[in-house]
């Protein structure tokens, strides 16, 4: 219980310990703590930023989706219009073609009828001449009356 030089020893030891603590223990740990604090703050900020970016991106995605939908609708409308147009055109073409074919057929029919009439006329003329010949043979010389017969033939 006496006060002795232990006092001095302890005093010096204490100061040495404090010095050691101040030089080699406290600063590195404090630095690490501060660094970690910064790291965590940065991480949180990055997370916040990421969230924000995600929000932005999803909004952008929704926008482009809407745009695409609009474009698609437009394309479909155009296609429908074009289809209707094509159908109209086809209808027109078909009608013209039909008309043309009908006209052709009509012309052919006319032609055919004319030719038949011609043939018929010739046959009737020949028949008439033959009949007339039979009647006149006895009384009329074919040669003498040839131009008369020709005239009758023409009238028929």
């Amino acid at each position: 219980m006496n006060i002795t030089a232990t006092l001095i020893g302890q005093s010096v030891t204490f100061l040495v310990f404090v010095w050691f603590c101040m030089k080699f223990v406290w600063p590195p740990i404090m630095n690490a703590l501060a660094e970690r604090k910064k790291l965590i703050a940065d991480g949180l900020a990055a997370g916040e930023r990421g969230k924000h970016e995600l929000e932005l991106a999803s909004r952008k995605a929704a926008d482009s989706l809407r745009d695409a939908k609009g474009q698609a609708a437009e394309v479909i409308a155009q296609a429908e219009k074009r289809a209707a147009q094509i159908v109209e055109e086809a209808k027109g073409t078909a009608k013209a073609e039909g008309d043309r074919m009908i006209a052709g057929a009509k012309a052919e029919i006319d032609q055919e009828a004319t030719r038949a009439r011609e043939t018929l006329r010739e046959q009737v003329a020949a028949l008439a001449v033959a009949g007339a010949e039979k009647i006149l043979r006895r009384e009329i010389d074919a040669k003498a009356h040839a131009d008369l017969l020709e005239a009758i033939k023409k009238e028929l």
């Binding site: 020893g9 030891t13 310990f17 223990v25 690490a32 970690r36």
Partner: peptide
């Protein structure tokens, strides 16, 4: 003195070990 120095050294040594490899 002996006990206090041993304890002090123990304290500084164990804390110094952490300080040396302290990282974030």
């Amino acid at each position: 003195l002996g006990v206090s120095i041993v304890l002090g050294v123990l304290f500084l040594w164990s804390f110094r070990r952490v300080a040396k490899k302290a990282s974030a």
